[in-house]
Write a protein that binds this DNA or RNA. Structure first.
Lengths: 345, 345
DNA sequence: AGTACAATTTAAATCGTTTATTTAAACTAT
DNA sequence: ATAGTTTAAATAAACGATTTAAATTGTACT
């Protein structure tokens, strides 16, 4: 590798000062247009590469934004990330992505690393059990945080997420409207705000329809396709013989449908299943999945926008921003058939 | 935010020099153990945060490694990324992830950004049409590159990938062994090395079994679940009435099976379908998918390892590293039934 | 007491930018 | 011409760490 080209290399070969070069490359009107052109041309010719760490050392803006979620391979987060990416790209910000897999420690390491790199801000879907201090660590060191998808108690940081309680009640009401009375809830956990909200929404909808809430109809845990698949056994052997399932998300729903199909029943006919999120996949599943659109792209876009606005000082975001979910009715739900799924028993 | 704590803050409050503090925090034997302890304690007490950009300005090692692939939401890359992540984590390297969506320009921007940030190295699955110069840009500026999954002609950079030609011939042979003679190939593109290799493997296997290769049986294009789903229509209306499909990857296969099911046929019985990659999802699909394990975790792990070794100077990797794929037989393939999929016509 | 040696600590240069302040040159207006 | 403006470029001081040569201190031995 040839000697590294830096501002001073350009300056020397052109017989000007580094200050002039620095200003010229950033198109400052302080340097004459003709000089600017000469300098830019030379920079290109020499293959100059801007050294951001040197610059940010001086300016204390790195152009780096961190994003940490449970699992970037999970399509739910994937859709959010895609929206964040396109919003940040537009502002020419570099973003550093990480999974925390719900490990508070991994998450803290990430925030720490980001601080070391001089990150300008961070967007996070906090790990289960995140103590407020871990978020404050960022804020206190001048790196504003925005939360997505999950809240943290006792913390005043802007958050963007879907209205889970309302959303799940949409799904539940849809099933009730189809005549179902024994409706299970499959997946999720009480350890996240999202989990509690969704269960609450399910309970509320049942109550409002005067259906007794049977805690045994809840199968907590699954959050993945694999989990939903495995939960099918459990679901099919519930003594109350549910005719429908409100699932934690689309992945669980698809997994559950696969499990149900594997047992010889036809999802959408013998058992109605709703998902949550409306992933791309929902519409091509077999049967296509009735689900609730959870505004992933909206969450990602507006969280990123909020952070950028805060950084540029143009607007200070705060409080909770709830995106209104919407029902998407497809083939995985249908009217109650009186045989139920136990083959006429 | 309180005044920023830096080395000199610690030095002053303790009455030592910044040199001592710097050395102490990195556990240099040059500084007395007692002093080291005092300094570390103070650093903790003051909430000191190491400034990596300042340090790397001096040391020219940033601890940043870039990874760019087609689409991180694609589970195939997801599994590779997971392996890379865990390997880099072990070495406490930060990794910056990006999609290029097969845009050469987006990919070049990423490399450029990485250079600006002082990235130590980059792992890439190059975008379609990547000119060798774009890789050399990295190498020439002291940032070694390692390729994964896809090759680039005329470039001497280490690469790790599955043996596509061999792998796809495994799948093809499996179908031939089951009695199938009219076997379509669904998905993929000639624009990547992978695409050409896989088609070649399919052709070779057919030839070796003395089956005539009919170009019309190739449905190029699809690489996603959605794509496979849509290709079903096309597949089912081929005049040669194929009884089996070798798919580009698991996603296409699953999509295709969904499409086939939607048309009233039963995949695994009426039409045999093979996937490629052996994603987690393959085993829970309905029917479970016969596929070829493509060594994603192995590719990711060894590519990361190779880069780290190169950076540490302990070993210089080079050449092509082919991972041997393995057959995974499940329920989506079965013996040829003489009715074919056209309902006895 | 003087010397040698090891164990600690420090001063100062350096990494590649940015930016406030100066200087120099070129115009303007009297 | 001269003082006053504008415009253009240069100087030099940061930013926050690392690193090496040099200085300081302490110990041991003759």
């Amino acid at each position: 590798m040839a000697q590294k080209v830096k501002l001073s290399t350009i300056a020397e070969t052109l017989g000007v000062s580094t200050a002039t070069v620095s200003l010229a490359l950033r198109d400052s009107p302080l340097v004459a247009l003709s000089t600017r052109d000469r300098i830019k041309e030379q920079a290109r010719a020499l293959g100059y590469i801007y050294n951001r760490r040197a610059a940010s050392l001086r300016t204390s803006r790195s152009g780096i934004i961190g994003v940490v979620v449970h699992d970037i391979m999970n399509p739910f987060y994937g859709e959010i990330l895609k929206a964040i990416e396109s919003e940040l790209d537009r502002d020419r910000q570099t973003f550093i992505l990480s999974n925390h897999y719900d490990s508070v420690e991994k998450q803290r390491n990430f925030v720490e690393t980001l601080l070391q790199l001089g990150g300008d801000g961070v967007i996070m879907s906090p790990a289960i059990g995140t103590p407020p201090e871990d978020i404050l660590l960022a804020e206190d060191n001048g790196m504003p945080a925005i939360l997505i998808a999950r809240s943290i108690e006792g913390l005043d940081v802007p958050i963007f997420r879907g209205d889970d309680s309302y959303g799940i009640s949409l799904a539940t009401n849809h099933l009730i409207g189809l005549g179902h009375r024994v409706i299970a809830m499959v997946g999720g956990t009480d350890q996240t705000s999202t989990g509690r909200d969704r269960y609450q929404g399910y309970v509320n909808a049942l109550r409002k329809a005067n259906i007794e809430v049977d805690p045994a109809l809840r199968i907590p845990g699954p959050r993945s396709k694999q989990g939903g698949f495995e939960a099918a056994v459990n679901f099919l052997s519930l003594p109350q013989k549910p005719t429908a399932a409100v699932c934690w998300n689309d992945l669980v729903a698809i997994g559950l449908m696969n499990g149900i199909a594997r047992a010889g029943l036809i999802p959408g006919r013998d058992v109605s299943v709703t998902g949550y999120d409306d992933l791309e996949e929902a519409s091509i599943a077999t049967p296509s999945l009735t689900t609730v659109w959870n505004g992933q792209s909206e969450v990602g876009r507006s969280a990123a926008r909020a952070l950028l606005d805060k950084l540029s000082g143009s607007h200070e975001p705060d409080g909770i921003h709830l995106i209104k979910p919407e029902m998407r009715i497809r083939q995985s739900t249908g009217p109650l058939r009186h045989s139920g799924h136990d083959n006429g028993n």
